[in-house]
Amino acid sequence: MYEKPILQVKHLQKQFGEGCPHCFDKESVYLEKNYCTVCGTVHAVRDVSFDLYPGEVLGIVGESGSGKSTMLQGLYFDSSMTSGAVYINQSELTGQNVLSLSSQQKRYIRNYIYGMVYQNPVDGLKMKFSSIGNIAEKMIAAGNRNVSNIEKRSKELLENVHIPLRRMKEEPQYFSGGMQQRVQIAKALSNNPPILFLDEVTTGLDLSVQASVLDLIKQIQRELHISMVVVSHDLAVIRMLADRSIVMLNGEVIENGLTDQILEDPQHEYTQQLVYSLL
């Protein structure tokens, strides 16, 4: 079976600190979790590689501090990575490591190819713009100039995420956490991105809102065939959404496989502990 990944991540590395001969030597390195005891460098993401295929949801699980969010921020160009390469299978970007592109080209990718939903809606929304304004802003950035089209599309998106249209002119700062999260999802979807990153989108939401956000994500995948990377520390969320998953610990990928296989036949010691802890 031959398939071409839409996103290829190769040997991604992110360190906070200079590093030293001790922590660069792969053979003898001993880190306390991800911290080098000799020079104090934190190795947040260590040699992470994975492929994302068209239309699939890839789950990334791991405890807090395991490097999940740092990696996602790096992919979305929110922070720079120390080394590694990311390739996107889009004709205009063939063969180019997108991490080394100019900031203008990166902005193009963020506006046209990527969508991002942050754990904290404050990072993804302008809290003092109206909800419809937030969506419009993203669409304008992606080159839309026709106001009536923008309005029509924004309304559709808000309806999709179950935000009542009578509240579309309200600022998200007056919305509940779950509603803010849904406005963020609507915003991220506004330019039909082929790749969507979701960072702990259901964390902190009550069960009922969580269910509707999960349902929405699944619906998006089914109907729009968007490829997604879903980061979560909640195994139940990953089980519902992802066919394939990666387990991270101390910045490294320690296990990857089919999600049900990871949950029922975990191979790594840490993954076994994680699964034993499942409610």
Binding site: Q210, L214, R222
Partner: peptide, 19 residues
């Protein structure tokens, strides 16, 4: 049975086919 929360019985069977 391990299914998406708040998805009706009918939708669950339908989704299997839509996928």
């Amino acid at each position: 049975l391990n299914v998406m929360p708040r998805t009706t019985c009918r939708e669950l069977v339908q989704n299997a086919l839509l996928e």
